[in-house]
Design a binder for these strands. Structure first.
Lengths: 350, 350
DNA sequence: CGGTTACATGAAACCGGTTACAGCGAGATG
DNA sequence: CATCTCGCTGTAACCGGTTTCATGTAACCG
């Protein structure tokens, strides 16, 4: 009893499994089993082991455990700190992170950050994943389905990508229903009585950019509205690009009475351009964005937008990667539903 | 030669140090030294070891290394996913994260995410830190200098907190010059000819809230302006709180001609309240915020604000934690400078 | 030329867990 | 009573590195 109490003071006792075993009068193997395979150990013994462990504040050493089992219970999060341009930041990185972290915690996994910054070699994260025995990897807005990632997946490490269509034996991806979301937006504008509906698209080479444009076109067709090439301007997903694109739209012969902007940042730029032209939103031109970033609710008159299930990205990615870690085949791509959030930019003020 | 080539195909060869040693005709000890203590090993031998390692794609197993050395080269990032209210998000979490990650990478450290979500016990992150042999911990917007963290620091694990004044043998913190920033704001408003300067403060129990209010008062005194109790309204750092606080200010007998708002989110709410009252910014009331969040530049007429060195938080935290890991005593608190960013909300349009 | 020294390396223990395998006692069965 | 089973536990090897200590060799020096 004395020694136990003595140890207890030192909250930071880094007791080993052998020490705990000695205190309990059993072998290290039994202690290990008491924790990892409770069924095979006598109930009395197990109870005593757990109690003593609590008393002395025993915590297993994860490094030793990983070394022995080759399972680290860690997944890597690969994200570009300087993606397309310096200062680039994913529109809702934090929401994804919270969703991912929460879902992983519930399943007993930790998250190791692996940024792919410029200075390092491309597959620095691949080496890190190997060195740390990562059980899986999630890529957020990774540039491309690059050879590094492909090698990683091919070598058996489960990979989940966000918004990039990667597929393989051990790889899948999560994305939003961009086509459906764009169609929601256009349908909404049509329901508001708008007929001359233009769009500011994202870069054609990006997946979401292409899909949202596709949705815009699909819905236009379904509604029987004409396709006007001068009503389609490509932006860059940034405020400045949206601003420039809107100006071009306003220079056209016939002015649109509504515009679907494929990203909220661009939509903010578009709103500004419309204001500068002396026109009013939504009276002269209705605007619908995409993403539902924080700013959307704050910029007057409130930006109607297509919301993505931001935390859902993280949750879905976590589920996918864990299921593959547990041995399941790569699940099919997960397409998250989108919802329309109506604010002032598309509906007349009361 | 043959076996080496053969191994090379299998990109995922998980070669061990003994295998590499065998290929080089040396002992594992020498290989280890070639990597970790190059000086003591013959240049020729080292060269051959490194070359062979590259050929077979050898990567040391970090778990084994950590087990042996008790150094994991990982620091934990503790952050509240559900701090004061669900959905709460740090205003520039991502910028801090980028700064932190970058600075840590440069020094050879990785970042392990340790969220303190509600369901878990308070010191879950302490246990995680111990289990994973974390070399240090950074806390972002941690609730308080709580017993768990204190125990962690007392046990010798270096801790760095952001915006919370924690001090100890192995603990320090990083914060912005809130007082100085607030003074900048008030001085600027004074220079613009404003004399009836009110403030919407942050919650008094928060460190930044209290300090920014202090700075407001200090500068008022220095300028010889009167202290009017009805010109000080406490907000909550959120849009709604800023909105409500501004309405109270507008109800006062005498209307302020300027208001220093201790947070940009609140400032957005204040702008809205001013607009709803039929007043114009900056003509009737000038507004200066604090933080320089993304929205500040986007909301018309552009919010003048006191910018914090967001990435600097991360960098400073990384430097502090690494220096402590390297054995140095806890460095003094780091107070990051703030700068005034002038936009339309405080200066008359041209 | 004997002795000291510096340098480079190897053998083996160790870090703290897990797990295959063997062993042991008690109860069941022939 | 001999044997078999079952349930529980211990022994020892192993995971893949690091590090102490001893050793062998070459250079250096009086």
């Amino acid at each position: 009893m004395k020694p136990v109490t003595a140890r207890c003071d030192s909250v930071w006792s880094v007791a080993t499994i052998r020490e705990l075993a000695r205190l309990c009068g059993v072998s290290p193997a039994t202690v290990s089993r008491a924790f990892n395979n409770p069924a095979v150990v006598n109930a009395k013994t197990r109870e005593q082991v757990l109690r003593t462990a609590r008393q002395i504040g025993y915590l297993p050493n994860e490094s030793a455990r990983t070394l022995a089992t080759k399972k680290s219970f860690m997944v890597g999060l690969v994200w570009d700190t300087d993606h397309r341009r310096p200062g680039w930041r994913h529109p809702f990185f934090q929401d994804i992170l919270i969703g991912l972290k929460t879902a992983l915690s519930e399943r007993g996994y930790h998250l190791l950050m692996l940024a792919t910054s410029g200075e390092q070699s491309d597959d620095a994260y691949v080496r890190a994943a190997r060195r740390h025995n990562l059980d899986g990897v999630v890529m957020i807005d990774s540039g491309t389905w690059d050879p590094s990632l492909r090698r990683l997946a091919a070598s058996g490490v489960p990979c989940v990508s966000l918004d990039r269509p990667v597929r393989g034996d051990r790889a899948t991806y999560v994305t939003s229903d961009n086509v459906g979301g764009a169609r929601l937006a256009v349908r909404h504008l049509h329901e508001q009585g708008r007929r001359a509906i233009a769009t500011i698209s994202g870069p054609a080479h990006t997946r979401p950019g292409a899909e949202r444009l596709q949705g815009y076109r699909d819905e236009l067709s379904r509604l029987g509205l004409p396709h006007r090439p001068d009503f389609v301007v490509e932006g860059d997903f940034y405020v400045a690009g949206g601003h420039a694109a809107m100006r071009r739209l306003l220079e056209a012969d016939e002015r649109p009475d509504a515009v679907f902007v494929a990203g909220d940042e661009m939509a903010v730029g578009a709103l500004r351009a419309i204001g500068e032209a002396g026109l009013k939103v939504p009276e002269d031109i209705a605007v619908v964005g995409f993403d539902d970033i924080e700013v959307a609710a704050l910029v007057p008159p409130g930006l109607t937008t297509v919301a993505q299930d931001k935390a859902g990205f993280g949750t879905a990615a976590a589920e996918a990667v864990v299921s593959m870690i547990d041995g399941a085949a790569a699940p099919p791509p997960r397409i998250l539903p989108t919802t329309l959030i109506v604010r002032g930019s598309s509906t007349p003020p009361l």
